[in-house]
Design a binder for these strands. Structure first.
Length: 334
DNA sequence: GCAAGGAACCGCCAAA
DNA sequence: CTTTTGGCGGTTCCTT
C-alpha cells in the first residue's frame, strides 16, 4: 500500500468547518462523517499513534445553531478562538445569504484562507468564498441552482457548472449537498492515497445512498418540455446521439445556415452546439456508468457517440473533472 | 505527450 | 431605422 509523505507525519490535521444559522445539515454532517470515519480507519489499520484528523465546528459564537433542517448543532469554537487549521471548509445552506453580507466574517475568512493549507466549500458555501474574493481567477463550482449567483459574486471565476468538485490550487469547491462527501474523499485521497480513500468510500456507501446528483435532472425530459424548432433539433440529437454529429448536420436538420443555427442555439441553450452535444453525451454515459457495472468503457463511449474511449475520457475530464472509471467507482452500484 | 489537420466558434459585414 | 439571416475569414479547440 503506497502512503503519501503526509501520512508519515505523526500529527493530527485539524479540519475546521465554518457553520452558521440555517446552514444545510448534510453539508456539515457529510464531510464530518467522512473525515471521522477515515480517521478511525486509518488509525486502526495503519497503527498510527494519534488520529490523523480532528473536526471542529467553527462559528461566529459558541453554542447551538439551528440548521435549515431544524436540527440544532453546537458550535464549539468561535472564529476568534480558532488556531491554525490545516483544512478549512465552508458549508452551504440558505443561511449563506446573511454571511455574504457580514463584512467582518468575510474579512476573517480571507485571513483564514491565507494560513490554511487548503480551503474548501460545499454547495452554496462557494458563494461565501466568492463574496470573500477567494475565487477570483479560479475554476470553481457550486450547487447547480446557484451558478448564476456565483458569477454575480465573482465575475472573474471560471464556473464549471457540471463538476462534482473542482480543485484549483489550494481551493476546492463542490456541487450540491452530497458532493461535499466527494470533496472530503478527494482530500483524503490527496493525503493518504487512493487505496485508502476507496476503502473509506466503500465503508460509507453502505450508509449513504447518493440522493441527488445533477445527473438526475434528465436532459431528455427537459428537451421534451421545450418548444420550437431548436427543441426538436435537441430531441433529434438525443435520438441520434451515437452517430457522429456536426454543426452542419444539425443546421440542416433545423433548416438554417450553420452560422445562424449556432447563434440561435447559443441564445436558447446558453451553450454552443458542440458543447451542448458533449453535455448530452456525458449525461447518457453517466447513466450507463451508474447503472451498469459490467459494460465496457469502450462500448459506452461508442454508444454515446464519443467514438474511441479516449474521447470520452477527455470529455469527462473537461466537464466533470473526473475520469469515467473514477465516476463509476464513486457513483456506480456498490 | 505531441503535432497536424479539421471542426467549431466568433467577429464582422452585407442583404433582405 | 431595426431585426433577422447568411457568408467569410481568423483564431481556438478538439480529434486523430
Amino acid at each position: 500500500m503506497t502512503i503519501s509523505k503526509r501520512a508519515e507525519e505523526r500529527s493530527t490535521h485539524r479540519v475546521a468547518m465554518f457553520v452558521y444559522p440555517n446552514a444545510q445539515i448534510l453539508d456539515i454532517t457529510g464531510p464530518l462523517e467522512v473525515f471521522s470515519r477515515a480517521s478511525r480507519w486509518i488509525q486502526e489499520h495503519l497503527d498510527i499513534e494519534c488520529p490523523p484528523y480532528s473536526v471542529e465546528l467553527v462559528g461566529e459564537e459558541r453554542g447551538p445553531i439551528r440548521t435549515s433542517g431544524g436540527l440544532e448543532l453546537v458550535v464549539n469554537c468561535t472564529c476568534e478562538e480558532l488556531a491554525a487549521a490545516d483544512t478549512f471548509l465552508v458549508t452551504g445552506g440558505i443561511g449563506y445569504s446573511s454571511v455574504v453580507q457580514a463584512a467582518g466574517t468575510l474579512d476573517w475568512l480571507r485571513k483564514r484562507a491565507a494560513v490554511s493549507r487548503r480551503i474548501g466549500s460545499i454547495c452554496t458555501g462557494s458563494l461565501i468564498l466568492a463574496a470573500a474574493g477567494l475565487l477570483s481567477g479560479r475554476r470553481a463550482t457550486t450547487h447547480w441552482d446557484y451558478c448564476k449567483n456565483l458569477v454575480e459574486f465573482e465575475p472573474d471565476a471560471e464556473l464549471m457548472p457540471d463538476a462534482i468538485f473542482v480543485r484549483d490550487g489550494n481551493i476546492y469547491t463542490s456541487a450540491g449537498v452530497t458532493a461535499g462527501i466527494d470533496l472530503a474523499l478527494a482530500m483524503i485521497e490527496e493525503d493518504w492515497g487512493r487505496p485508502i480513500a476507496l476503502r473509506v468510500a466503500q465503508a460509507l456507501v453502505v450508509y449513504l445512498v447518493r440522493p441527488g446528483g445533477q445527473s438526475q435532472f434528465s436532459q431528455h425530459l427537459r428537451a421534451q418540455q421545450r418548444r420550437g424548432i431548436l427543441a426538436q433539433v435537441e430531441l433529434w440529437m438525443l435520438e441520434h446521439i451515437s452517430e457522429p454529429l456536426t454543426v452542419d448536420t444539425l443546421a440542416d436538420v433545423a433548416g438554417m445556415s450553420a452560422r445562424h443555427f449556432t447563434r440561435r442555439f447559443v441564445k436558447e441553450f446558453g451553450a454552443t452546439p458542440a458543447a451542448h452535444l458533449a453535455d448530452l453525451r456525458i449525461e447518457r454515459a453517466r447513466a450507463m456508468l451508474e447503472s451498469d457495472p459490467a459494460r465496457l468503457l469502450k462500448d459506452i463511449a461508442r454508444e454515446c457517440g464519443f467514438g474511441p474511449d479516449q474521447n470520452m475520457r477527455r470529455a469527462f475530464l473537461r466537464v466533470l473533472n473526473i475520469t469515467p472509471d473514477e465516476y463509476r467507482q464513486r457513483f456506480g452500484p456498490a
